[in-house]
Simulated scan of single mutants.
Amino acid sequence: MAEPTAHAGYGIDIGGTKTELVACDAALQVLWRQRIATPQGDYPGFLQAVVDLVAAADAALGQRAGAIGIALPGVRDRDGRQLSANVPALTGQQVAADLQARLSVPLRFGNDLQCFALSEAHGGAADGYPSMFGAILGTGAGGGFCAQGRLLAGFNGLAGEWGHWSVPAHLLQRHGLPLLDCGCGLRGCLERYVSGSGLAMIERHLGGSAANASAVIALADAGDVRAGHALDIHRDLLGHSLAALVLALDPHIIVLGGGLSRHAPLYEQLPAAVARHLFSGVQVPPIVPPHFGDAGGARGAALLALDSPPTQPSGA
């Protein structure tokens, strides 16, 4: 059992494939961590899994959290209903209210992608930069934008939802890709193509059978021509999408997250891929891996719980 602390705050990051809890002290030192698979298609089971995670942390630390920050996937409407393309069981549910009813400590809610960006802006890869964008490439694609360490969430709390910008028709035509529906209700969203699952989709569209992005990368490393072609297409689409971010927000640094952030060649190849979609004279900002790996979302949620950042996401 860890030494009890009077200032423990929990952060829970709920992703499309995994849910992770970290318990941190006031200095953001991790006291406890546990990760489980995100329950799919079972909303009551999802709620119980979160309750069980909190109970396990309480037992390990010998006390209850002072507050819990929860990074939810997707967005909430004005009535509190969740929209989550990557955890469909949450869509239409009053997730924040239902969790608050089961956990008798203060809860603070944020977007999972924005919490990743907030974490990297505070002691992470973007610490000290005037502005940063955290771009997650995992089951889906999205991110968050911070300026002077402050998370800018916007009127609807949607700032950083770059994964739901549209892929231009000419790029789909160039690569012979179909116009795909997205779980958000729109069509042709970037995340269907530039996420890890998007990379696997491209390989399968070319006639392959890779189950996920890791399989595509492994095949390409082994010399598979089709997998290599899929990576080329993916890099062009990702280069376009990050160039659009540069034009819209001009961040001083871009931090990648999610499973694809572990693919080291991206950091050598992406600057040129981004530059191809920018006009002459525009500099590509540094594109770097995350300091906190794929645990950044949970740490950002713990920042919400501990009230460390200057501001909180809109709607938290």
Rank of each mutant, 00 (worst) to 15 (best):
E161L: 11
G157I: 08
A117G: 02
A117T: 14
C115P: 03
S166W: 00
P168V: 08
G143N: 04
S119D: 05
S166H: 13
P168E: 14
G134A: 11
A135L: 15
P168G: 15
G128M: 00
H122E: 01
G124P: 05
T139S: 12
I136L: 13
G157S: 09
W165L: 12
A135M: 15
C146T: 12
R150G: 05
P168A: 14
M132H: 02
R150S: 13
W162S: 03
G128W: 00
H122R: 09
D127E: 15
P130D: 13
Y129W: 12
A121P: 02
C146W: 07
C146I: 06
R150M: 14
G143R: 01
G144I: 00
G144W: 01
A121L: 11
G154T: 10
N111E: 04
G149K: 07
S166I: 07
L152R: 01
A135H: 14
G138S: 15
G154R: 09
G123V: 08
M132V: 07
W162L: 15
G128H: 11
Y129F: 15
A153G: 15
G163N: 11
R150V: 09
L158S: 13
A126C: 09
A117W: 02
D127C: 09
G142S: 14
L158K: 01
E120G: 01
V167F: 03
S119N: 10
H122D: 05
W162K: 00
V167W: 04
G134K: 01
G142D: 04
Y129E: 13
G149M: 06
G138F: 01
E161K: 12
V167Q: 05
N111C: 05
G138D: 06
G143L: 08
Q114D: 00
L152Q: 04
W165M: 14
S119W: 07
G143W: 02
N156A: 13
F133A: 12
G144E: 04
A121D: 03
S131E: 07
F116H: 06
L113V: 15
D127F: 11
E120F: 14
R150Q: 15
T139L: 04
I136P: 01
A147C: 08
L137P: 05
F116Y: 14
E161V: 08
M132K: 01
G154I: 10
D127V: 00
V167S: 09
A147I: 14
G124Y: 05
F133S: 01
G149D: 10
F116L: 07
L152N: 00
